[in-house]
Amino acid sequence: MAAAAVLPTLPPQFKSVQHHLRTAQEHDKRDPVVAYYCRLYAMQTGMKIDSKSPECRKFLLKLMDQLEAMKKQLGDCESITQEIVGSAHVENYALKMFLYADNEDRAERFHKNMIKSFYTASLLIDTLSVFGELSEENVQHRKYARWKATYIHNCLKNGEIPQ
């Protein structure tokens, strides 16, 4: 599913949600519920950062158009109409990504896919904050996943074998 409105260029103030929006685009077809909540996280975070400057306001208005169009298209999906169900959906998806990457890591199979899975898992745990405060377990998973993605990426870039 392609989201309705095309977004304008990302304002530099919103750089911190750039990868969440990219994850949303990557999941529009694969898992629209994940795509919806990644955009919702970017929306709420963007509004906290800057909803006054013309460039940011224009971007947020378009992002809101996308979210409203997605909600309309997914209207009968429980994960969208009931956020408690949505929260479980996103958390399960994030955990699935984390476990896949962790299994590859333990099997010492280091590759771009497992790095991306670690990193995407950490982005999806960020997204869980739209539902409320993160659990300590999720905070730890996010920290570990982001560190692992960075560490393994740097090792492969330098031609070293991750320990």
Partner: peptide, 27 residues
């Protein structure tokens, strides 16, 4: 013009907040 611009901005900001609340069925 400054004050007009500011009031437009705050109206749109309120509009965004209201749309977000409606989106999350929090109205």
């Amino acid at each position: 013009t400054g004050s007009i611009g500011a009031s437009v901005a705050s109206t749109e900001q309120d509009d965004l907040s209201q749309r977000l609340a409606r989106l999350r069925d929090q109205v």
